[in-house]
Nucleic acid binder design. Sequence first.
DNA 1: CTGTTAGCGCATTCAC
DNA 2: GTGAATGCGCTAACAG
Lengths: 332, 332
Amino acid sequence: MAKHSDSGSTIADVAKRAGVSLSTVSRVMNGNVKVDPAMTARVRAAAVELKYTASPLARSLVLGKTQTVAVVVPDLANPTFHAILRGLSRAAADDGYHVLVADSAEDIDTERTLATTTRRRTDGLVLCAPRLPDSELDALLPSLGPVVLINRQSAGIPSVSADYGSAFTLLLDHLYERGHRRLLFLAGGTRSASERARRDAAARFVATHSSVELTTRDTGVDMESGARAAADVRDSGATAVLAFNDLVATGLVTALAAQGVRVPEDIAVTGFDDIPFARYLSPPLTTASVPAFELGAVAWALLHALLTAQPVPGAQTLYPQIVPRASTAATP
Amino acid sequence: MAKHSDSGSTIADVAKRAGVSLSTVSRVMNGNVKVDPAMTARVRAAAVELKYTASPLARSLVLGKTQTVAVVVPDLANPTFHAILRGLSRAAADDGYHVLVADSAEDIDTERTLATTTRRRTDGLVLCAPRLPDSELDALLPSLGPVVLINRQSAGIPSVSADYGSAFTLLLDHLYERGHRRLLFLAGGTRSASERARRDAAARFVATHSSVELTTRDTGVDMESGARAAADVRDSGATAVLAFNDLVATGLVTALAAQGVRVPEDIAVTGFDDIPFARYLSPPLTTASVPAFELGAVAWALLHALLTAQPVPGAQTLYPQIVPRASTAATP
DNA sequence: CTGTTAGCGCATTCAC
DNA sequence: GTGAATGCGCTAACAG
């Protein structure tokens, strides 16, 4: 195989150029061990002249570390995952780590494969809202080595999650206080833990508020799904609808407007996540502010602790705040 | 150094387990060379029992390929880069490649460093709308090996770009046809090629339309910048404003509404990019539809061709369409 | 077809 | 302090 024309010089070149041994160059470059000042200077000079930089690959092989972590997300198209990725990426970069991203496209098989393969070429793994069933996740994770979970839990695995359940309850309270009794929940229809949390919260709310009638309908997770649900929502008789997330809410609100249904006068709408656009929607969207960027940052902190053998906290929880805006302003 | 408890078994384990030599295992695993069926079966069995998978690191070192490419973007918070990243990531995954992402945070030094370091641990590099000055880019690129550019050009480097200039002209025409003569361009103030393209197009337009008066003002690239510019815009006397992108337009339109300025009745507004939210803004935003996902996909196709020594087309150009919506509906 | 040998580029023992 | 070996895990060229 032809030599890479692009790969710079090797450590041997530098050694020869400086008239020293391989090991000396290695020592100088790593700076761990004491080396004669004169030699050090010569090696440094040679390295600069030859534009030498140690091959990350070779180092990784011998050191057993790649300085890279993998993060698997279910859907790169979702603004919330963007923010998580951004928070993670920035934090990791600050610690000198690189990030390998993989998009499972909401597919369970892909997710499983990606988790395994990306983990093998990195030092650690972050699984973001994995869609794998609990049983399989619990079985898989221990063999994956350093791994942290976002918005999902598994025994013995460090994790950071937003408390979707409590936030959903806050949204429910918010609506209730404004007099809404006929509620409609547009569920995402995903296998995510956050979806379960919302459903459970809804069930608990209904159980404790006898005057409330809440219907749940599987709708989807994106704007199109929200738009498609508009007619259904209009005819549902509900005075308030809780969309799975801001995307769904956006599609819904817009389609509703096109059909002459006014928000919030005719029907109140809440979203979830507080994506950047939520406040720019018309009307501005009442939603639960999920600290996605921070979720990513904390996930990195957890993984970094794991990688450096530092004490690692167990399951971290971040609490979304609800952000009341005009989409729920009126009372029926 | 302690052995990785997580790293599976080695090729030697499998060889011993199957009673064959190292190379035989390697051959079976790679399937290139013919191996006795009986042996093949034994090796396969052993590999399965031991859950053996070849170390990607070791393979990378000897093969000189990592099956990974790096992509450097100026800002992971920008929806357009998301779409590009998504298109790239999906396409690369289809060809069995992994993607390393790095965010330069709009910083030139970071960008330079990232390009170099990430390139060393991957087989190729995609620079997305790099902010480096032309001279430096031209000097740096050749030494980086397989690299492709998105929304930027450099001699001899394969690239794919959206034609921001022609699209901007289309937007200008659109406004002109609707009777607008006093125009305001809210520039981004970045060093990106797409910004230059817009400015040049604006200059050409003014030169060929004597009745048009166009003012340019550096504003920024995000929603906050757009919102901050609202008062200025209102007092500018312009009947139409071209925002740098949809983000700026969104911030602007919303802030304008808060100040009692109606769009498009009092002033028309155009965006750029056609991010998913553009059509959900109130009023829906007239914008130029940049095929970001496709930009990413084409970039991968280019890089893949480069990596597999196939003929590589030079500079590819994608032409944004303009999408007329309500934000420019009225005539002054 | 198969086993043996030699690296890939580097960090790290071990002797000096 | 320094240089000479050893090996990280694997593939490829080498003999048989």
